[in-house]
Design a protein around this nucleic acid. Structure first.
Length: 548
RNA sequence: GCGCCCGUAGCUCAACUGGAUAGAGCAACUGCCUUCUAAGCAGUAGGUUACAGGUUCGAGUCCUGUCGGGCGUACCA
């Protein structure tokens, strides 16, 4: 159902008639040329082999092309061009046959075996429960969830995990902030602590406590009760927000459990056995300088509290102990520095560091009134994901975060996102899908039950029909590439091209009013296109409406 | 200072990971609704891919340097 394997096998066969095998040659690629006039597919095999074969690329290409031409049932055209590209064009009969196979398996079309049988754990969001999720967290959540969907389509079993910490200074500060608001609301003289949380939600939590406990909590010594209440409420809110975005976590991993089960101290011990731990100035150090880093790293502070590095290492060991073949972390650019330390630690502990991969994304630059807007959870001058979804909905929000390559900064113009509902690219895709459904409704009315048996694939012969078909065949390749490179935006780029090809077909080839066979066959092609669009959109977590 | 990421049309971004004449969407301009959804289509215009070298059949993509931006560079989280 993907065209590349057809060509690939043909090349292997051609090589065998020349007494060669792939093993003798460097890796080569098969691609769809940018310019469709060059052919359906193209390979650089002759160019990359020139050195080994001690022969000019054109000469190799010519021989290979001859061998390929003998496979008459496959190709209508085999040519050599430019510096030695071999370009081929498939016979219509081949495309018709592939399309039939696709149509028979449309619902699962796109699924592949790139990660077949792998157990993969994705860690993402992982915001500590100190406040509502903001626009900044959105990119993380959507990237993580979409990667999970991609891996699943590539045959993997995926666990989505949220790693958080309900201990530590920020959480204490949160508790104290709630405590202060609680006292204030009961008319007491209390002040928000220095550096406390100023958001309105703190007051809401305090109010809930008053509803439940009245004034009884004024006697509380510490901030513990308040912290727990805040944590519970905020985590519930976060889950609800994620739910709205179609993000469902499989597990929440509390960093604190690594303290309770002594996992972190075991890590220190194991590292110590390798002679990589020492004490200095009252702190415990990891001798990362022996492992290629410039400086050593503190594992346990003078105060006795571990730094973030230590539980990070213990956490990743825990994941590998749970039997995952691949651990993927979704990180903002600001967290990148912890990653090499974790890998070093994992390596020393005797695990395979290649099982840990990171998707690093650049920051979201929020633009408000044409100017960059600096956000801080603590200062409460943030825009929450909920507020954003109130304005533009979940589909647009997800699509927006996925549109750009993770490695580039994402400019999020709030005003534009709010106002531009009809200019948003997501609607182009949804519109194409809705349009197809509309035509299909009409076609089905006309053809009734007979529509399937009327289909005659050979009746597809228009240029627009062929280019649409060829585009569809690439869907599995795109999913695999997007998953491997961890770049979900490739799916969007592909879907936009597909929708564009469909629209071209739609304007060139009428469905209604044609001969019954043509009508049925074109309707089937449109139907298959709709399914590909729907499959792709579902990977992105975006709906495919039947009407707009 | 050092490390990582980025620099492509006026703006926001692609470019199948080294391939052929660098492409879309906004914005601008010109056409197209008595025919399956005009949230659409066809077309025009817009570029020394920040700059300078290098590697090779071939560079936006790889290596070096320079300039500019972001993020790090904590016994913060």
């Amino acid at each position: 159902m993907s065209l590349k394997p057809l060509f690939h096998n043909a090349i292997k066969h051609a090589l065998s008639t020349m007494d060669l095998s792939e093993g003798d040659l460097p890796n080569y690629t098969i691609e769809a040329p940018k310019d469709p006039s060059h052919g359906d597919l193209s390979t650089n095999i002759a160019m990359v082999s020139a050195k080994v074969a001690k022969e000019a690329p054109q000469s190799i290409a010519a021989k290979l092309a001859d061998a390929l031409r003998t496979q008459e049932d496959l190709f209508s055209e085999v040519g050599v061009a430019g510096p030695g590209f071999i370009n081929i064009r498939f016979k219509p009969s081949v495309l018709h046959k592939e399309l039939k196979t696709l149509a028979d398996n449309a619902e699962t079309f796109g699924r592949n075996q790139a990660f077949d049988g792998k157990k993969i754990i994705l860690e993402f969001v992982s915001a500590n429960p100190t406040g509502p999720l903001t626009v900044g967290h959105g990119r993380n959540a959507v990237l993580g969830d979409t990667m999970a969907r991609l891996y699943e389509w590539c045959g993997a079993t995926v666990t989505r995990e949220y790693y958080f910490n309900n201990a530590g200074r920020q959480m204490r500060m949160l508790g104290e902030s709630v405590k202060a608001r609680y006292a204030q609301q009961l008319g007491q003289d209390a002040e928000l602590p220095e550096g406390g949380y100023e958001g309105e939600y703190i007051g809401d939590i305090a109010a809930t406590l008053i509803d439940g406990h009245g004034e009884s909590l004024l006697q509380e010594e510490g901030e513990g009760v308040f912290k727990e209440a805040a944590e519970k409420t905020i985590l519930e809110d976060i889950t609800r927000t994620l739910d709205r975005m179609q993000v469902k976590m499989d597990s929440f991993f509390n960093e604190h459990s690594l303290y309770e089960n002594k996992a972190i101290y075991d890590v220190v011990e194991k590292l110590n056995e390798k002679g990589l731990v020492y004490q200095k100035d009252g702190a415990v150090w990891f001798s990362t300088s022996q492992l290629g880093k410039e400086k050593d790293t503190v594992l346990i502070k003078k105060s006795g509290e571990p730094t973030y590095r230590l539980p990070d290492i213990a956490y990743h060991r825990d994941k590998l102990d749970r039997g995952f073949d691949l651990c993927v972390d979704i990180f903002g650019a600001d967290h990148i520095d912890t990653y090499p330390d974790v890998l070093r630690g994992i390596d020393v502990l005797g695990y395979d560091p290649e099982k840990i991969e990171v998707l690093v994304y650049q920051f979201v630059t929020l633009v408000k009134d044409g100017k960059p807007y600096k956000m801080s959870t603590r200062k409460a001058n943030f825009i929450t994901l909920d507020e954003l979804m109130d304005e533009v909905g979940s589909d647009v929000t997800r699509f927006f975060f996925l549109m750009r390559a993770p490695s580039t900064h994402l400019e999020f113009d709030v005003a534009q996102a709010k106002e531009a509902s009809d200019k948003n690219p997501v609607f182009y895709l949804q519109y194409a899908h809705a349009r197809i459904q509309s035509v299909l409704r009409k076609a089905n009315e006309e053809l009734g039950d007979k529509s399937t048996e009327l289909v005659q694939w050979t009746s597809l012969e228009h240029e627009a029909e062929f280019s649409l078909m060829k585009k569809l065949f690439f869907f599995p390749d795109v999913i695999e590439t997007a998953a491997r490179s961890k770049e979900p935006h490739k799916v969007i780029t592909y879907l936009q091209e597909t929708a564009q090809e469909f629209t071209h077909f739609y304007h060139e080839c009428r469905i209604m009013g044609e001969e019954p066979e043509v009508m049925a066959t074109r309707a089937k092609l449109a139907d298959v296109t709709a399914t590909v669009l729907k499959n792709g959109l579902s990977l992105l977590g975006v709906t495919a409406p039947n009407k707009m």
